[in-house]
Design a binder for these strands. Structure first.
Lengths: 245, 245
DNA sequence: GAGTGGTCTAGACCACTGC
DNA sequence: CAGTGGTCTAGACCACTCC
């Protein structure tokens, strides 16, 4: 209830007040949905103008802590919405955990091969550069879900050729070697499974398949990995958070 | 330079002014980095208070259109650098522009309907709440690409029922009414087109379809729109940027 | 120093909610 | 109807940039 320290603190008043409100909500143990005092009362107890108070309140809306309802009041937001979802494409492993299933892999191919012209261009490297190719069938609880083909320059992590990817995670191994992957540009499409894919996944030829094609970039914005994952449409669904515009 | 229509228009002044500023920037062909007139000049030409002007300007900052520099001025934002972080799903209209194609829509259904229990739960509203339902077939250069079904509480923008969505953009209309959409939680899957979808898109029954299902949230983290888009797998491909972890 | 954005105020009126 | 959030105003002062 104490008024914010106006002079000594270099932060703007509305920031200080926002912090005080959060403190107060926590201290009073206000549950989600609880109503706050009206604006005019808050502005008087904090001894600030209503405009400044509203700036603080709206900031807390942006942070997902409060919501406003015209004519009714200010309320503590239900925290479920903001936090829990991934801010990215849910990884195979994460999905597995969420569904309480066990992920595994069958390594179909794991070798070194010179880059052809197409791949060289996409990775911005000279053709002929040694690449590591890794092809895996991904399973959940021993059910075949997808075929994952990933290609990367061998120079990125030369000793990766000796890793057994039956259990190891490619991203995990790269991270352990200091390769930081920043973001990826992806296309997602629906296709009919061809004979080869149908055979690998044990589905009917012509069944729908979800194809995720990614070019993955390192921290310095250079392309590092090419990845194509073909999911069985009947057995998997991508989950992600999207931001318009 | 005309002052916003203060009385006739039900939208808040700051929304109108934000739109005017965007118009002006486009009309004057201001490139990224160009400087805007100072706040005091803008507030006088628009005949509004500086507080209201700043609300409009800050809204445009949130939308990534402008940036402010203390002591120097307001500038048109560079549309590149910071923008790619979030998992932005390229909108239908954006994709069309990038490919130099012409987007259009056929409105199949556009009505008001009470919420059933399932929808009510997903939107966190009481069952029976009036909803606007909009179903469109989306076309690129007159080729049918997808069926788009969107549902939203009528209260969000009641006059949306009178808009002709043959040409209008739903997101654009919502934005013009001050409804700020922040992010969405999406699932993406591959399915076989059923008879109804095949008929609507003019494809073979059983052909692969890409189904994008989104719950879209407003700025205050409340669910506002439910959207399901079924794309022809042979005619469309989603493009997005993904951010690990 | 002049010019710019950043913060803050007191007070007014409107729009919505719920009794 | 009273109580609430939503918008808007005119004016003040501070902090930063650039000459």
């Amino acid at each position: 209830m104490s008024a914010p320290r106006r002079d000594s603190n270099p932060d703007p008043l509305w920031t200080q007040v926002a912090d005080l409100i959060v403190e107060q909500v926590e201290r009073d143990g206000l549950a989600a949905g609880a109503r706050l005092p009206p604006e005019r009362e808050l502005s008087s107890t904090f001894d600030i103008s209503r405009v400044t108070l509203r700036k603080a309140l709206n900031h807390l809306v942006d942070r997902g802590i409060l919501t406003a309802s015209h004519g009714r009041g200010w309320f503590v937001a239900t925290p479920v919405a903001g936090r829990e979802w991934p801010n990215d494409l849910e990884s195979f492993t994460t999905t597995a955990r969420r569904k309480h299933m066990t992920p595994s892999s069958v390594v179909v191919r794991h070798d070194v091969h010179p880059a052809d012209l197409d791949v060289a261009e996409r990775l911005q490297i000279p053709a002929g550069t040694p690449l590591m190719r890794l092809e895996r069938v991904r399973l959940l609880n021993d059910v075949r879900i997808a075929v994952d083909r990933t290609t990367l320059p061998l120079s990125l992590a030369p000793d990766l050729v000796d890793v057994d990817f039956t259990t190891a995670s490619l991203f995990g191994e790269l991270d352990a070697r200091g390769v930081e992957l920043l973001r990826s540009v992806a296309t997602i499409e629906a296709r009919s499974a061809d004979a080869a894919l149908a055979e690998q996944l044990g589905i009917a030829p012509g069944a729908p398949a979800l194809v995720l094609d990614q070019t993955i970039f390192t921290r310095d914005h250079r392309p590092a990995l090419l990845s194509t994952v073909e999911y069985s449409g009947e057995r998997y669904r991508l989950r992600t958070t999207l931001q318009p515009r």
